Simulated assay, not measured.
Amino acid sequence: MERFDLGLVFSTTGPYAALGRAARAGAELAIADLARDRVAQISPIICDPAGRPDAYEAMTRDILERGVSHVVGAITSWSRKDMIPVLERYGALLWYPCPYEGFESNDHVVYMGAAPNHHMIPLLDRMLAAGVRRAYLLGSNYVWGWETLRLARERLNAAGVEIIGERYVPLGDTDCALALSEIAELGAETVINSLIGPSNVAFMRGLPARGHPEVVSCNQSEADLETLGEAGDGLVSAGTYFEELGPEEFVRRAAVVAPNGRCSSFFATTYASVCILAHSIQRAGSTAPKAVFRAACERSHDTVLGAVRIDPITRHADLTPHIAQARQGRFHLLASSEGPIIADPYLTSLQPVQGGLRKTPSLRIVK
């Protein structure tokens, strides 16, 4: 049985604490399961940067100075980008389990979360297939909000969709009054929502109970759906895991250890990341990052996310995109890809919108 230390760097307090708590719980369940199955005895070194970028850098350095070679963590791209120079200096590897906006491939990161062609592109194509003509863009004021909405703006504009407004809310701020008034006054058909944490809760709860536009998102999950209450009903989200997908036994066990009793994409992807890491160390016979990464890329992995293969060039996981809608505190699948899609972080294979609106969705409808 392999034995190694593992850094877990998740903000379990601060503006996106719900996501960090879900992800850390997924890592801890994986560690327990791997010990039970005698695959690995992992000693976690747990840090909580509380959403402060400078703390991510300092805490990562403290972990790596102890001789640790692998870290699972970060939630935002802001935090990941602050960790990367430290990882490069110490030759360590970050297993990043969260959806992000793409346009990165670093030799010291394994991107286990959804890339843009796993979340935003399927979501936009669904909108275009439905004939949306007037959209409002709303995001948290940092790289996730900027880049996801830039992509949305460019693709929707190319299809002839009018962007009637675009606003950004400081991370953690709950004042969404201006956006809410503009959405009502300008007559948006759809709101693309890239808010996170308390900002997202304040916005969703601020919408009128009836008659508001459809709200779609790439980062909504079971980790924070419960906090929205009835305000979450109707929300459409894109991602590479929803609780409804199971497996049933995994969801049941997650309910016992997840902070809110729910199995989210943050929980499931972090669980899968730790399992792939441990099995790759076992095959490599070493914790050396380069050897472990080679071992991780040599085969497809059977995970709670389904079949996952890591591309040795882009360093991203091939994942299966899904679209789901929230009803009564649960996400219910609307459409899914037939299987894993090769990650395209730089969107080099993205087909441009031709001749106006797309007529067919890129995902199959879930019956």
Score class of each variant (00 low, 15 high):
269 T>D: 05
240 T>E: 01
161 V>E: 02
13 T>Y: 09
111 Y>C: 07
38 R>M: 08
307 A>L: 15
308 V>G: 01
8 L>Q: 12
242 F>D: 00
305 L>T: 14
62 D>Q: 15
36 R>Q: 06
127 M>G: 01
171 L>R: 06
181 S>H: 13
142 Y>R: 11
325 Q>A: 13
179 A>R: 00
356 G>W: 01
246 G>F: 05
345 P>G: 10
136 Y>R: 02
361 P>H: 02
33 D>K: 14
49 P>G: 15
276 I>A: 03
65 E>F: 07
327 R>P: 01
260 N>L: 14
224 D>M: 14
37 D>G: 07
351 Q>G: 12
188 A>M: 08
324 A>E: 01
312 P>I: 04
154 E>S: 14
37 D>Y: 12
39 V>M: 09
153 R>H: 14
341 I>W: 10
367 K>S: 12
162 E>P: 08
5 D>F: 12
132 V>L: 03
154 E>T: 13
215 V>F: 07
217 S>M: 11
1 M>V: 13
56 Y>G: 04
107 D>C: 08
114 A>Y: 07
14 G>L: 11
46 I>W: 10
31 I>W: 06
194 S>P: 03
1 M>F: 09
70 H>D: 10
269 T>W: 06
335 A>N: 08
217 S>G: 09
202 A>C: 09
71 V>I: 15
91 G>Y: 10
193 N>P: 08
77 S>R: 05
294 R>H: 11
204 M>W: 03
307 A>W: 08
164 I>P: 05
111 Y>R: 09
95 W>V: 01
323 I>W: 00
239 G>V: 00
136 Y>I: 05
126 R>L: 15
365 I>Y: 05
101 E>N: 11
51 G>M: 02
361 P>I: 03
224 D>V: 08
160 G>W: 05
49 P>E: 07
216 V>S: 05
21 R>L: 15
222 E>L: 11
280 S>R: 05
221 S>V: 10
162 E>K: 11
19 L>E: 03
18 A>D: 14
32 A>P: 00
366 V>R: 15
